[in-house]
Design a protein around this nucleic acid. Sequence first.
DNA 1: TCTGGGGTCCTAGGACCC
DNA 2: TCTGGGGTCCTAGGACCC
Length: 423
Amino acid sequence: MSCERAFNPALEQVPVVVLSNNDGCIISRSAEAKALGIKMGEPLFQVKALLREQGVQVFSSNYALYGDMSQRVMNYLAAVAPAVEIYSIDECFLDLHGLQRWQAPDLTCYGRQVQAALLRRTHIPTCVGLGPTKTLAKAANRLAKKLPAFGGVLSLVDESIRRELLEQLPVEDVWGIGPRYGGKLHALGIRTAGALSRVSESWAREQLGGVVGARLVRELQGLPCQGLAPSEDGTLARQRIACTRTFGQPLTGYPDLLRAVAHFTARAAEKLRQQGSAAHLLTVFLCPGRFGADAQPSRAATLTLPAASNDTGQLLALVRAAVRKLWRAGTVYHKAGVLLAGLEPAGRQQLGLFDDPALAARRARLLREIDALNQRFGRHKVAFATMLAPVGSATPRWQTRHERRSPAYTTSWDELWTVPAAG
DNA sequence: TCTGGGGTCCTAGGACCC
DNA sequence: TCTGGGGTCCTAGGACCC
């Protein structure tokens, strides 16, 4: 929502929401939209009337824009902190050990400077939470968002402040307490983060899933149990890579389904190569409807590759076999996906007895070139034949709906932001 | 009556996160 | 009519090994 606002001043101070893929659910809301009672994750069709009545501005998600804006924010943070861990598209942990200029009581000033600089550079508003553990930093961030008096920056480094403020944080707002544990804790009389920080380790182990609960409580007490996940560029190497989509319109035909799954495979393989991995396991699944009368369980097939691969062509050969096995005539499919697991660093695969190392090197080079072309000219401009529909056919029906998407202001020459002339 | 004591690997399921 | 798409970690249990 903040990315939309950054390029469209007319969205300031009015209710704005952003939709999930396929324009299905609401996944981001401005404060004004929250105040109208619109909930996170709510299906669009259930609130359509309310949105119209209240004049809420509605956007399809625009990941080209959000991803690029996220990178700008993360790049700045990486420049001002000794180490960073990019936790999600809109969150980042900074390790401040070794930060020379700023010491404990001043860390809030540091937080304010970072917050102000981000707003100036990217127009993205942020909240900063500081603490001796990740869990306390998250708690501080949550409180900074909830209590306007702090101006979006709060430190829980000081113990007496911590004791006081953790009492004001509902236990279900603690990082790692979801709906299940939240309900359980309330039933057991633990209602705030402060109360949770005072339970014994053995009690935490018993009630909150073993070692996970024990770590959570220790972190609340200020004893670090999770370090920064190390990686050079701040991104985490994934252990699994998936690409799954609900289709724009349901599919029944085998060729349509195969083309859709082939696209997901190509995308998953790109992500795999991007992080320098190769996969041993490939899962393909096809889902009929999830809702209504003709809802059926999804069918999946997992294949083991003889040698780890990140070669789209090799993966497609297996995917083709899997789809042929899973597909049933007459079933209406709403969603499909590809999952890659058993990842290892690429290029370390044992060559089979009859594999030709020179050929493998040429394949790798070919894939690098294809990735570079698609990076420059647009996703899947160069594609494998399995992905393609006959020449001249209409837009594939499986493609995601995004009827209210804003322009890719920062990543496409054709959609650059234009500044209205003064006067 | 009496029935060892270690391991590993994999999968499914449950909890959580954004 | 219409319901997203990614991820993580842990535990228990089964199959198998010596």
